[in-house]
């Protein structure tokens, strides 16, 4: 299937999901669905660097938080534009504020992508484990920075007041529904990007990095540049996923935004679904995401996080290629009598 056809299909599928959700008329469905969609974006983004290139990023929460706090900062500037936007430059920028959520998503993606690029530039020349450890440490440091940054609320956190609904052509759309639609579109974009990479020259390059960097260089693959591209794309998508979050949750504080659940979920979902294709993270995110939404209501959030951790360990030990790998093996076994 051609990439643009796939993207259209993804958007159509998204529209279908949205129409169905509207028909069911349950606000809870939108609330829970938003989180699952957010995990689809995060897991797909993680997999572009982790699954395709073999570089483990433990800093999903950091990139997500970059998006979240970009929104918080820009929202605050927008809400007090008279105070923060003075001078000629300020007056030029003033008409742009308050920024719409799609604009915030794009800006957050840019900020997270640039930070990812910088991180990568410092650590990607070295062995992959150093990159992994650096991302883990980066999460701690960004959290420290945010805790000490009073402008975005410091350790106390910040409240974001959103409107009840948005006037659309002909009818009023609830804000949660609006955010759900944005995240749906973002998921379609993330999956389209992942699939496009897989079938392109870039995808072959990423696979050679995962397999053997020395041989990749000898074949003419500019490994450092490709790793930087992967880190930037992956980081940007994670940042984009974090941008609408303040409007969704209404109140953000560092401990929650930098929570380990983002890191563990974005690793567990591709690992459980399968890391070599775009469908793996999607399957993993839908399964684990829905499971957690149900478990949070019925059991407790700590228990379901424990479950994610246990599933991650069990899958990497027993089924290294995830559910996609199991399906593949099963098909092979059936073909051979």
């Amino acid at each position: 299937m051609r990439p643009w056809k796939f993207s259209l299909l993804m958007v159509a599928a998204g529209a279908g999901v949205f129409a169905l959700a509207l028909a069911i008329r349950s606000d809870y469905l939108f609330f829970a669905g938003y989180v699952v969609l957010q995990f689809i974006v995060l897991a797909t983004a993680w997999n572009i660097l982790g699954g395709y290139c073999g570089y483990v990023n433990f800093g999903t929460a950091a990139f997500f938080a970059i998006g979240t706090y970009t929104t918080v900062a820009l929202h605050k500037i927008g809400a007090n534009s008279g105070r923060y936007l003075s001078g000629t430059l300020g007056e030029l920028l003033q008409p742009l504020f308050p920024l719409s959520v799609p604009a915030l998503v794009i800006l957050s993606g840019a900020v997270a992508g640039v930070i990812g690029l910088g991180m990568g530039y410092l650590t990607l020349r070295l062995r992959g484990v150093f990159f992994a450890i650096a991302t883990l440490a980066m999460a701690v440091v960004l959290q420290t920075l945010v805790i000490n940054w009073e402008f975005v609320g410091g350790s106390r956190g910040a409240y974001i007041i959103r409107e009840e609904s948005l006037p659309m052509v002909g009818f009023k759309l609830g804000y949660v529904q609006y955010l759900f639609a944005i995240m749906l579109l973002l998921a379609a974009v993330a999956l389209s990007v992942a699939r496009l990479i897989e079938r392109s020259r870039l995808g072959y390059g990423f696979a050679t990095i995962r397999d053997d960097e020395m041989a990749a260089e000898a074949a003419g693959v500019p490994t450092l540049r490709l790793k930087l591209i992967a880190t930037a794309i992956s980081g940007a998508l994670m940042g984009m996923a974090g941008a609408p979050y303040p409007y969704y949750i209404g109140y953000v504080e560092p401990a929650g935004t930098f929570g380990l659940q983002y890191a563990v979920n974005s690793i567990a979902m591709p690992m459980i679904g399968g890391t070599t294709s775009w469908a793996g993270p999607l399957i993993g995110a839908i399964l684990l995401g829905s499971m957690q939404q149900i478990a949070t209501v019925t059991i407790s959030s700590a228990v379901n996080l424990l479950l994610v951790g246990v599933l991650l360990v069990v899958f990497v030990v027993i089924a290294p290629n995830g559910i996609m790998g199991l399906i593949f093996d099963w098909q092979h076994a059936r073909r051979k009598p």
Binding site: G50, V56, A302, L305, V310
Partner: peptide
């Protein structure tokens, strides 16, 4: 490289959440 790291990360997470529980 990839799965071994994920394995230890999972262990870290299980220990932490287990102790919280």
């Amino acid at each position: 490289a990839l799965r071994g790291l994920a394995f230890f990360f999972g262990l870290l997470f299980i220990t932490e959440v287990g102790l919280i529980l």
